[in-house]
Design a binder for these strands. Structure first.
Lengths: 228, 228
DNA sequence: GCCACCTTGATTGTATACAATCGTGCCCGA
DNA sequence: TCGGGCACGATTGTATACAATCAAGGTGGC
């Protein structure tokens, strides 16, 4: 149970602490609304208060924690309406990213996507769902990067983090067959058709309906599949 | 030419430095690609290196600067493709925010919007364009907050900052008559119709066409109006 | 003359120490 | 008994000092 950030991580320094705290928030180690005292964090992650403070500043900008002057930071609480908005925003941005990726993707990125699909096939055959989830994150991360837009990439990545955050505490995983759709995405990217790429990803995300119409407040994305 | 952050600012501490540096980046004081040495910044803004570092962490998360380990931070450079993406992303998110605002806005927020429109009328009559620009920012800020979604509010606010950043260096202002449309937005919000709100803001932003189709690469938002 | 290596300088990353601020509990008085 | 005020503790915000790392320039050898 030692969460201290390893010295070996490629991102030396406070960046590692940022990732560690963010992961712990997503995984529910730090519950929403919990107070995050700087000294406690510095003890827990084995660094001084300065990197902790910088990490908290990053997490604040990303929306994972809220800061009030001289009152400390607390883990942000995502209510149902926020969760619904996340789904909606993502259903707008990821198709846009896919459309960009269809035009701008590099051969190397396409190769990485194909590689990830192949790895997922192996993992699926071996029944390693844990591996599948990790590959899923990587797939969408590379897909976002293929958009060629730094802004889009960062936004989509952060949205995915928050989606994971929301779903981690809400439902068990059901991951398997989304990879058939992943393979389809790669094929569309290779064809270079932006419209088709956007449509495929829209369907993949699971919000095929019109954009701006607010969904039924009752159906708070509980039927969404975290593994997409 | 003293940019040091005043002690009087409501947001005590490093938050003020963050705002100051961001404003200077947006205003072009720190040119894209410029190296931002921490000590130079701390001298310029009259604080120590620690608040500067925290501010840079925030600005990094917001995408205004890029950090490379032990290599310092540089002001991010937005190429034309990025600028185009910003326009596209905003044309997706602001209508969504308006749709949410039409349903969730509080009476207080609606009052503030009306008040801003009135103030803009006065400023317009007096010919104070500088005041108009500031009111314009406030209007869209309150409009975003009225969406009731913290995520949406932050995203839209950051996008607006970046739009301002892009346009500051590119074209002169032409601000006047967008306020007629602002008044229209307020009316739609009061009516409570989400679809109509989304349509009005979509037209207001100036990208009425379909969402995912990439725009003509030649027409890089140069004909966009920064004052909307 | 050119390349590899090392040294040096500057800059970032981190830790420790100090100051400012706020919440809290206690005490006193009505 | 209850309310206001005050002092205390804890925590955040900031400044200074030190360690780690990298880039550049010089020097020696080939």
């Amino acid at each position: 149970m030692d969460s201290r950030v390893g010295k070996d991580g490629r991102d030396g320094g406070a960046g590692g602490v940022t990732r560690a705290i963010r992961d712990d928030i997503i995984r529910g180690v730090h519950a929403p609304g919990a107070r995050l005292a700087e000294e406690a964090l510095s003890a827990r992650y084995g660094v001084s208060r300065v990197p902790v403070r910088e990490a908290l500043r990053t997490l604040e900008a990303e929306g994972f924690v809220a800061r009030r002057p001289y009152a400390g930071v607390v883990v942000a609480a995502l209510d149902d309406a926020e969760a619904e908005d996340l789904v909606e925003i993502r259903s707008l941005l990821e198709p846009l990213g896919a459309a960009r990726a269809a035009v701008r993707h590099t051969p190397e990125q396409l190769g990485r996507l194909k590689e990830l699909v192949a790895l997922a096939d192996d993992a699926l055959a071996a029944g390693r769902l844990e591996e599948l989830a990790r590959l899923n994150s990587r797939f969408h991360e590379v897909l976002a990067q293929a958009s060629g837009s730094r802004t889009l990439t960062e936004l989509i990545t952060q949205l995915r983090w928050k989606m994971e955050w929301v779903y981690t505490a809400k439902l068990p995983r059901r991951a398997q067959d989304s990879w058939r759709e992943h393979r389809e995405i790669v094929a569309v990217l290779e064809s270079g058709d932006p419209d088709k790429a956007a449509r495929v990803v829209t369907r993949h995300i699971g919000k095929g309906r019109g954009a701006h119409r607010p969904a039924d407040p009752q159906a708070i994305a509980v039927d969404q599949d975290p593994e997409d």
